[in-house]
Nucleic acid binder design. Structure first.
Lengths: 206, 206
DNA sequence: GCGTTTATATGAACATTGTTCATATTATGT
DNA sequence: ACATAATATGAACAATGTTCATATAAACGC
């Protein structure tokens, strides 16, 4: 389930024994769970340690600050989102299908991991550069993918399209969380509203 | 410049004398300035009070908690954004124009007040309910407005449209901040990419 | 004007937080 | 089996959000 980080993360000291990894994942898992219900400043380090059955000192072996644990969660979510997207898009053959399945993957990921918004958008309050890098890099790879399917697009401005599509997915995911949507409801929203929107537009022209 | 809140805000005790209002705006003004550079958790109540030349006790006359001051700032941005939107949309006669001018108003507001993302999205790291209330109420009023122009829409699902359009505006605003766009560049993006998108869609259908 | 009440100002004091540290225990390599 | 590195622990510290008793200023009735 948990995948060990490949590249080093500033402020995070990765364990070197199995016992260490157990404690490490106990801490990150407990933190993620606590952040789902409460916000960053409502969760204390001792809350996290109590939930993970560790002492406070152990926390500071692996994370230099409480913020660094948060930074680790950002990187981990980024990896998981990209993986979920590439897996769901893989079998698709048209851009339309890729947009539908990509949007669905993101929305369902959001429903299953509502904390993703706290982590990604909340990164604005932690490290603005981290936040900007996240979306700029996401937009670039999105634009690259759209360029490959450019003959299937109405408009050649793939960068604006990328931001618009990221915005749509992000806010539909937000709504899905707010309304605790089931997968069937998400499918319905995508088929009855999202697909018509990207196929025909929003405003009916005479 | 400052406009006194009309409706009561939970956790905020509005002043009843001129001296009170002076201190109140000194506190909110200092806080907004401090939150532009640092995040909610990095700014202490004593930082705010020092910048506003008030004692800590005075802070707690007007705000029950530090979070309640933040809540006031969110409400103030909401009011300013809604005002900017309604002013820019007022002269429009079609839904298409309203979407263009509404989107432009939001993007230009973002460019002129980049802190808006720190405050609104940062509210996730402060009070999740505050964040949810902001977007749920925004979506509702957006959907209400779309319903009035329903004969001009391709699709009757105004709630999904609201979230999608909020997403597009939000992310185009984000891009405009990242790339420090000028008003001319924003106009170009809206005319060459945003308008075609909502008029004809994104995927070219056979 | 004067007296009373309400509103506001103040910073020391308190409880809780993020963080550090000295010390004890466990794992690893030879 | 031993030495070294890695990990575990919770009491102690500095800083934070908040409260409170006390002092000053404004508002109001007469």
């Amino acid at each position: 389930m948990n995948q060990r980080p490949s590249k080093p993360i500033p402020g995070v000291n990765l364990p070197k024994t199995q016992l260490g990894w157990d404690k490490f994942y106990a801490l990150t898992g407990a933190a993620e769970k606590l952040f789902t219900r409460s916000s960053f400043h409502e969760v204390s380090v001792s809350d996290i340690c109590r939930a993970a059955h560790t002492a406070v000192g152990t926390f500071y072996i692996y994370f230099e600050t409480k913020t660094d644990l948060y930074r680790y969660l950002v990187e981990d979510y980024k990896r998981r989102i990209k993986q979920s997207l590439s897996e769901s898009i893989a079998p698709c053959t048209t851009r339309l299908e890729r947009e539908r399945e990509g949007c669905k993957a993101f929305v369902m990921f959001s429903v299953k991991n509502p904390t993703v918004y706290n982590i990604i958008w909340g990164s604005l309050a932690v490290d603005k550069q981290l936040f900007k890098d996240y979306y700029v890099s996401f937009a670039k790879s999105y634009a690259r993918a759209l360029t490959e399917d450019r003959e299937e697009l109405c408009n050649p401005d793939v960068m604006t399209l990328s931001y618009a599509l990221m915005g749509i997915s992000s806010f539909l995911g937000l709504r899905a969380i707010f309304e605790k949507m089931s997968e069937a409801e998400v499918d319905k929203m995508l088929d009855e509203s999202f697909l018509p929107m990207i196929k025909e537009g929003i405003i009916r022209m005479p």
